[in-house]
Design a protein around this nucleic acid. Sequence first.
DNA 1: TATTAAGTAGTAATGATTACTATTACTGTA
DNA 2: TACAGTAATAGTAATCATTACTACTTAATA
Lengths: 126, 126
Amino acid sequence: MRSSRQRDAVLEVLRASCDHPTADVIFERVRSQIPNISLGTVYRNLGQLKDEGFITVVESSDTKVHYEGNLNEHIHFLCKMCNNITDVWCQSPVPARLAEMGLQVESQKTVYYGVCKNCRDNIECN
Amino acid sequence: MRSSRQRDAVLEVLRASCDHPTADVIFERVRSQIPNISLGTVYRNLGQLKDEGFITVVESSDTKVHYEGNLNEHIHFLCKMCNNITDVWCQSPVPARLAEMGLQVESQKTVYYGVCKNCRDNIECN
DNA sequence: TATTAAGTAGTAATGATTACTATTACTGTA
DNA sequence: TACAGTAATAGTAATCATTACTACTTAATA
Protein backbone atom coordinates (compact mmCIF):
# COMPACT_ATOMS: atom_id res chain seq x y z
CA MET A 1 0.00 0.00 0.00
CA ARG A 2 1.73 3.16 -1.15
CA SER A 3 0.82 6.62 0.09
CA SER A 4 -1.98 8.64 -1.41
CA ARG A 5 -3.46 12.00 -0.55
CA GLN A 6 -6.97 10.61 -0.80
CA ARG A 7 -6.37 7.74 1.63
CA ASP A 8 -4.60 10.01 4.10
CA ALA A 9 -7.56 12.39 3.98
CA VAL A 10 -10.09 9.58 4.55
CA LEU A 11 -8.17 8.32 7.58
CA GLU A 12 -7.70 11.82 8.93
CA VAL A 13 -11.40 12.65 8.59
CA LEU A 14 -12.40 9.43 10.29
CA ARG A 15 -9.97 9.96 13.16
CA ALA A 16 -11.30 13.47 13.66
CA SER A 17 -14.92 12.26 13.71
CA CYS A 18 -16.65 11.90 17.07
CA ASP A 19 -19.57 10.03 15.52
CA HIS A 20 -19.57 6.82 13.46
CA PRO A 21 -20.01 8.05 9.91
CA THR A 22 -21.04 6.07 6.85
CA ALA A 23 -19.14 6.07 3.55
CA ASP A 24 -21.29 8.82 2.04
CA VAL A 25 -20.86 11.07 5.09
CA ILE A 26 -17.09 10.53 5.02
CA PHE A 27 -17.23 11.32 1.30
CA GLU A 28 -18.89 14.67 2.02
CA ARG A 29 -16.40 15.53 4.76
CA VAL A 30 -13.37 14.65 2.64
CA ARG A 31 -14.75 16.71 -0.24
CA SER A 32 -14.09 19.90 1.70
CA GLN A 33 -10.40 19.07 1.38
CA ILE A 34 -10.38 17.29 -1.97
CA PRO A 35 -13.40 18.58 -3.91
CA ASN A 36 -13.14 16.17 -6.84
CA ILE A 37 -12.53 12.97 -4.86
CA SER A 38 -14.69 10.10 -6.04
CA LEU A 39 -17.12 8.13 -3.89
CA GLY A 40 -15.60 4.93 -5.25
CA THR A 41 -12.20 6.07 -3.99
CA VAL A 42 -13.64 6.59 -0.51
CA TYR A 43 -15.14 3.09 -0.54
CA ARG A 44 -11.93 1.50 -1.79
CA ASN A 45 -9.79 3.27 0.77
CA LEU A 46 -12.16 2.47 3.62
CA GLY A 47 -11.88 -1.18 2.60
CA GLN A 48 -8.10 -1.06 2.51
CA LEU A 49 -7.81 0.83 5.79
CA LYS A 50 -10.10 -1.75 7.38
CA ASP A 51 -8.12 -4.67 5.95
CA GLU A 52 -4.88 -3.13 7.23
CA GLY A 53 -6.40 -2.59 10.67
CA PHE A 54 -6.32 1.21 10.73
CA ILE A 55 -10.07 1.53 11.16
CA THR A 56 -12.97 -0.66 12.24
CA VAL A 57 -16.57 -1.21 11.35
CA VAL A 58 -19.38 -0.53 13.82
CA GLU A 59 -22.60 -2.53 14.11
CA SER A 60 -25.61 -0.39 13.35
CA SER A 61 -29.34 -0.62 12.84
CA ASP A 62 -29.53 0.66 9.28
CA THR A 63 -28.32 -1.05 6.13
CA LYS A 64 -25.32 1.22 5.75
CA VAL A 65 -21.87 0.38 7.08
CA HIS A 66 -20.61 2.70 9.85
CA TYR A 67 -16.89 3.29 10.35
CA GLU A 68 -14.75 4.22 13.32
CA GLY A 69 -11.22 5.60 13.55
CA ASN A 70 -10.74 5.26 17.30
CA LEU A 71 -9.15 1.87 17.89
CA ASN A 72 -9.04 2.09 21.69
CA GLU A 73 -11.22 -0.68 23.06
CA HIS A 74 -14.64 0.51 24.10
CA ILE A 75 -18.28 -0.45 24.04
CA HIS A 76 -21.13 0.76 21.88
CA PHE A 77 -24.64 1.60 22.93
CA LEU A 78 -27.18 1.55 20.14
CA CYS A 79 -30.48 3.36 20.75
CA LYS A 80 -33.36 1.47 19.17
CA MET A 81 -35.39 4.65 18.75
CA CYS A 82 -33.03 7.22 17.23
CA ASN A 83 -30.45 4.60 16.10
CA ASN A 84 -27.69 6.75 17.53
CA ILE A 85 -24.47 4.99 18.50
CA THR A 86 -22.87 6.14 21.76
CA ASP A 87 -19.30 5.32 22.72
CA VAL A 88 -18.96 4.00 26.26
CA TRP A 89 -15.53 4.13 27.84
CA CYS A 90 -14.97 1.97 30.88
CA GLN A 91 -12.72 -0.94 31.76
CA SER A 92 -15.33 -3.44 32.83
CA PRO A 93 -18.62 -3.08 30.96
CA VAL A 94 -20.88 -2.62 33.94
CA PRO A 95 -24.50 -1.72 33.21
CA ALA A 96 -24.16 0.71 36.11
CA ARG A 97 -21.90 2.86 33.96
CA LEU A 98 -24.54 2.87 31.22
CA ALA A 99 -27.32 3.78 33.65
CA GLU A 100 -25.10 6.60 34.90
CA MET A 101 -24.98 7.89 31.33
CA GLY A 102 -28.76 7.70 31.04
CA LEU A 103 -28.66 4.68 28.74
CA GLN A 104 -31.43 2.17 29.43
CA VAL A 105 -30.14 -1.29 28.48
CA GLU A 106 -32.57 -3.87 27.10
CA SER A 107 -30.26 -6.38 25.50
CA GLN A 108 -26.66 -7.00 24.66
CA LYS A 109 -24.64 -8.69 21.97
CA THR A 110 -21.05 -9.81 22.16
CA VAL A 111 -19.10 -10.91 19.13
CA TYR A 112 -15.59 -12.34 19.09
CA TYR A 113 -13.53 -12.18 15.92
CA GLY A 114 -10.70 -14.43 14.86
CA VAL A 115 -9.91 -17.64 13.01
CA CYS A 116 -11.85 -20.85 13.51
CA LYS A 117 -10.36 -24.33 13.81
CA ASN A 118 -11.11 -25.37 10.24
CA CYS A 119 -9.43 -22.34 8.74
CA ARG A 120 -6.41 -22.62 11.04
CA ASP A 121 -5.97 -26.28 10.09
CA ASN A 122 -6.15 -25.40 6.42
CA ILE A 123 -3.46 -22.75 6.78
CA GLU A 124 -1.16 -25.19 8.57
CA CYS A 125 -1.60 -27.79 5.81
CA ASN A 126 -0.68 -25.37 3.04
CA MET B 1 -50.38 -8.85 14.14
CA ARG B 2 -52.83 -11.55 13.15
CA SER B 3 -51.81 -15.08 12.30
CA SER B 4 -50.64 -16.10 8.87
CA ARG B 5 -49.37 -19.38 7.48
CA GLN B 6 -46.43 -17.63 5.84
CA ARG B 7 -45.23 -15.92 9.00
CA ASP B 8 -45.61 -19.11 11.03
CA ALA B 9 -43.53 -20.95 8.43
CA VAL B 10 -40.79 -18.29 8.44
CA LEU B 11 -40.53 -18.44 12.24
CA GLU B 12 -40.60 -22.23 12.27
CA VAL B 13 -37.86 -22.48 9.65
CA LEU B 14 -35.68 -20.01 11.53
CA ARG B 15 -36.18 -21.79 14.84
CA ALA B 16 -35.24 -25.10 13.20
CA SER B 17 -32.07 -23.62 11.67
CA CYS B 18 -28.75 -24.33 13.36
CA ASP B 19 -26.97 -21.72 11.26
CA HIS B 20 -27.71 -18.01 10.86
CA PRO B 21 -29.46 -17.80 7.49
CA THR B 22 -30.04 -14.74 5.33
CA ALA B 23 -33.42 -13.72 3.93
CA ASP B 24 -32.83 -15.49 0.61
CA VAL B 25 -31.78 -18.74 2.33
CA ILE B 26 -34.86 -18.60 4.56
CA PHE B 27 -36.90 -17.95 1.43
CA GLU B 28 -35.56 -21.15 -0.17
CA ARG B 29 -36.21 -23.20 2.95
CA VAL B 30 -39.77 -21.93 3.37
CA ARG B 31 -40.47 -22.64 -0.30
CA SER B 32 -40.34 -26.38 0.38
CA GLN B 33 -43.47 -25.88 2.50
CA ILE B 34 -45.11 -23.00 0.63
CA PRO B 35 -43.84 -23.16 -2.97
CA ASN B 36 -45.38 -19.89 -4.12
CA ILE B 37 -44.38 -17.72 -1.16
CA SER B 38 -42.90 -14.41 -2.23
CA LEU B 39 -39.45 -13.10 -1.27
CA GLY B 40 -41.06 -9.82 -0.27
CA THR B 41 -43.30 -11.70 2.14
CA VAL B 42 -40.26 -13.29 3.76
CA TYR B 43 -38.60 -9.88 4.17
CA ARG B 44 -41.75 -8.29 5.58
CA ASN B 45 -42.31 -11.11 8.06
CA LEU B 46 -38.68 -11.15 9.15
CA GLY B 47 -39.02 -7.45 9.87
CA GLN B 48 -42.22 -7.92 11.85
CA LEU B 49 -40.88 -10.89 13.79
CA LYS B 50 -37.79 -8.85 14.65
CA ASP B 51 -39.86 -5.84 15.72
CA GLU B 52 -42.01 -8.06 17.92
CA GLY B 53 -38.94 -9.66 19.48
CA PHE B 54 -39.44 -13.21 18.19
CA ILE B 55 -36.15 -13.28 16.33
CA THR B 56 -32.91 -11.34 16.31
CA VAL B 57 -30.35 -10.14 13.84
CA VAL B 58 -26.76 -11.37 13.89
CA GLU B 59 -23.72 -9.27 13.05
CA SER B 60 -21.90 -10.67 10.03
CA SER B 61 -19.08 -9.85 7.66
CA ASP B 62 -21.04 -9.74 4.42
CA THR B 63 -23.56 -7.14 3.34
CA LYS B 64 -26.55 -9.43 3.89
CA VAL B 65 -28.53 -9.50 7.11
CA HIS B 66 -28.33 -12.77 9.05
CA TYR B 67 -31.19 -13.89 11.29
CA GLU B 68 -31.43 -16.06 14.37
CA GLY B 69 -34.38 -17.79 16.01
CA ASN B 70 -32.68 -18.89 19.21
CA LEU B 71 -33.27 -16.14 21.77
CA ASN B 72 -31.29 -17.74 24.60
CA GLU B 73 -28.41 -15.46 25.41
CA HIS B 74 -25.16 -16.56 23.87
CA ILE B 75 -22.05 -15.26 22.16
CA HIS B 76 -21.05 -15.29 18.52
CA PHE B 77 -17.66 -16.05 17.08
CA LEU B 78 -17.10 -14.73 13.59
CA CYS B 79 -14.24 -16.26 11.58
CA LYS B 80 -12.52 -13.61 9.49
CA MET B 81 -11.45 -16.17 6.91
CA CYS B 82 -14.53 -18.28 6.14
CA ASN B 83 -16.97 -15.75 7.64
CA ASN B 84 -18.73 -18.55 9.46
CA ILE B 85 -20.66 -17.62 12.61
CA THR B 86 -20.32 -20.03 15.54
CA ASP B 87 -22.65 -20.01 18.53
CA VAL B 88 -20.83 -20.11 21.86
CA TRP B 89 -22.82 -21.15 24.91
CA CYS B 90 -21.34 -20.33 28.28
CA GLN B 91 -22.37 -18.22 31.24
CA SER B 92 -19.31 -16.02 31.52
CA PRO B 93 -17.71 -15.29 28.17
CA VAL B 94 -14.25 -16.55 29.00
CA PRO B 95 -11.78 -16.72 26.12
CA ALA B 96 -10.75 -20.07 27.61
CA ARG B 97 -14.04 -21.53 26.44
CA LEU B 98 -13.36 -20.24 22.93
CA ALA B 99 -9.82 -21.67 22.90
CA GLU B 100 -11.31 -24.97 24.05
CA MET B 101 -13.52 -24.88 20.96
CA GLY B 102 -10.52 -24.19 18.73
CA LEU B 103 -11.52 -20.57 18.13
CA GLN B 104 -8.54 -18.20 18.03
CA VAL B 105 -9.73 -14.79 19.27
CA GLU B 106 -8.17 -11.66 17.82
CA SER B 107 -10.66 -8.99 18.79
CA GLN B 108 -14.04 -8.49 20.37
CA LYS B 109 -17.00 -6.18 20.09
CA THR B 110 -19.73 -5.62 22.61
CA VAL B 111 -22.89 -3.74 21.82
CA TYR B 112 -25.65 -2.81 24.22
CA TYR B 113 -29.13 -2.06 22.92
CA GLY B 114 -31.82 0.07 24.51
CA VAL B 115 -33.15 3.61 24.71
CA CYS B 116 -30.90 6.63 25.17
CA LYS B 117 -31.60 9.57 27.48
CA ASN B 118 -32.83 11.90 24.75
CA CYS B 119 -35.39 9.45 23.45
CA ARG B 120 -36.57 8.51 26.93
CA ASP B 121 -37.07 12.19 27.80
CA ASN B 122 -39.05 12.73 24.61
CA ILE B 123 -41.38 9.82 25.42
CA GLU B 124 -42.02 11.17 28.91
CA CYS B 125 -42.89 14.60 27.55
CA ASN B 126 -45.43 13.25 25.07
C1' DT C 1 14.10 10.62 -15.91
C1' DA C 2 11.98 6.24 -17.45
C1' DT C 3 9.49 2.38 -15.93
C1' DT C 4 5.97 0.11 -13.59
C1' DA C 5 2.30 -0.79 -11.00
C1' DA C 6 -0.83 1.11 -7.53
C1' DG C 7 -4.21 4.66 -7.20
C1' DT C 8 -7.93 7.77 -9.02
C1' DA C 9 -12.23 9.92 -11.22
C1' DG C 10 -16.12 9.07 -13.40
C1' DT C 11 -19.52 6.10 -14.66
C1' DA C 12 -21.96 1.69 -15.21
C1' DA C 13 -23.49 -2.49 -13.07
C1' DT C 14 -24.88 -5.34 -9.20
C1' DG C 15 -27.78 -7.03 -5.85
C1' DA C 16 -29.99 -6.83 -1.24
C1' DT C 17 -33.85 -4.67 0.35
C1' DT C 18 -38.10 -1.93 0.07
C1' DA C 19 -42.25 -0.09 -2.12
C1' DC C 20 -46.34 -0.67 -4.69
C1' DT C 21 -50.77 -2.73 -6.19
C1' DA C 22 -54.35 -5.79 -7.16
C1' DT C 23 -55.95 -9.72 -4.87
C1' DT C 24 -56.60 -13.00 -0.96
C1' DA C 25 -57.72 -14.53 3.61
C1' DC C 26 -58.22 -13.73 8.67
C1' DT C 27 -61.34 -12.18 12.38
C1' DG C 28 -64.98 -9.92 14.82
C1' DT C 29 -69.92 -8.91 14.47
C1' DA C 30 -74.88 -9.27 13.18
C1' DT D 1 -73.38 -18.28 8.27
C1' DA D 2 -72.79 -13.99 5.66
C1' DC D 3 -70.60 -9.72 5.68
C1' DA D 4 -67.43 -5.96 6.36
C1' DG D 5 -63.14 -4.31 7.32
C1' DT D 6 -58.49 -4.71 7.12
C1' DA D 7 -54.06 -7.13 7.56
C1' DA D 8 -51.38 -10.11 4.67
C1' DT D 9 -49.86 -11.90 0.18
C1' DA D 10 -47.76 -12.60 -4.66
C1' DG D 11 -45.63 -10.57 -8.11
C1' DT D 12 -43.22 -6.99 -9.88
C1' DA D 13 -40.94 -2.48 -10.05
C1' DA D 14 -38.06 0.76 -7.79
C1' DT D 15 -34.40 2.15 -4.59
C1' DC D 16 -29.89 2.79 -3.21
C1' DA D 17 -25.55 1.19 -0.89
C1' DT D 18 -21.78 -0.91 -2.71
C1' DT D 19 -18.73 -2.85 -6.26
C1' DA D 20 -16.75 -3.23 -10.90
C1' DC D 21 -14.76 -1.24 -14.84
C1' DT D 22 -11.72 1.77 -17.67
C1' DA D 23 -8.86 5.32 -19.27
C1' DC D 24 -5.88 8.30 -17.02
C1' DT D 25 -2.67 9.87 -13.13
C1' DT D 26 0.81 9.51 -9.68
C1' DA D 27 4.09 7.49 -6.34
C1' DA D 28 8.19 4.70 -5.82
C1' DT D 29 12.33 2.74 -7.46
C1' DA D 30 16.38 2.02 -10.32
